[in-house]
Simulated assay, not measured.
Amino acid sequence: MRDRQVSRDARRAREFEAFVAGAAGRLLHTATLLTAEAPDASPRARRLLTLALAHVYARWDRLRGEDPYDCARQYLATRFARATWHQYVAPARSRRPDPGNPLAALAPQERLILVLRLYEGVAEEQVAALLGLPMERVRTICDRATSAVLHPAGRSAARAVGAKAVSS
Score class of each variant (00 low, 15 high):
131 L>C: 02
94 S>C: 09
8 R>H: 12
76 L>W: 03
33 L>C: 12
51 L>N: 14
15 E>M: 10
133 L>I: 07
26 R>F: 09
146 T>W: 07
52 A>N: 07
27 L>Q: 01
77 A>H: 01
100 G>Y: 02
18 A>Q: 15
102 P>K: 09
78 T>R: 14
119 Y>I: 02
138 V>E: 00
51 L>G: 13
77 A>E: 00
91 P>W: 05
9 D>L: 14
51 L>R: 14
130 L>F: 03
115 V>R: 00
91 P>K: 11
82 R>A: 10
131 L>K: 05
73 R>L: 15
103 L>R: 01
121 G>I: 01
120 E>F: 02
43 P>T: 09
74 Q>D: 15
57 Y>M: 11
89 V>G: 10
87 Q>A: 10
81 A>H: 09
88 Y>N: 12
92 A>G: 11
12 R>A: 14
96 R>A: 13
67 D>Y: 06
72 A>F: 06
25 G>S: 09
107 A>L: 11
35 T>A: 10
130 L>I: 02
122 V>P: 03
50 T>V: 03
78 T>F: 00
6 V>P: 13
139 R>E: 15
121 G>A: 02
54 A>S: 14
85 W>H: 11
40 D>M: 10
73 R>E: 12
79 R>I: 02
103 L>W: 02
151 H>I: 04
152 P>K: 09
55 H>L: 06
152 P>Q: 09
83 A>F: 01
74 Q>H: 13
103 L>H: 00
48 L>H: 05
107 A>T: 09
7 S>I: 02
152 P>A: 08
66 E>D: 15
64 R>F: 11
80 F>K: 03
120 E>R: 08
80 F>Y: 13
64 R>C: 13
6 V>G: 12
93 R>D: 15
54 A>E: 15
32 T>E: 06
147 S>Q: 13
42 S>I: 00
116 L>M: 15
23 A>Y: 00
83 A>C: 04
8 R>F: 08
141 I>C: 01
110 E>P: 00
55 H>M: 04
10 A>T: 08
118 L>C: 12
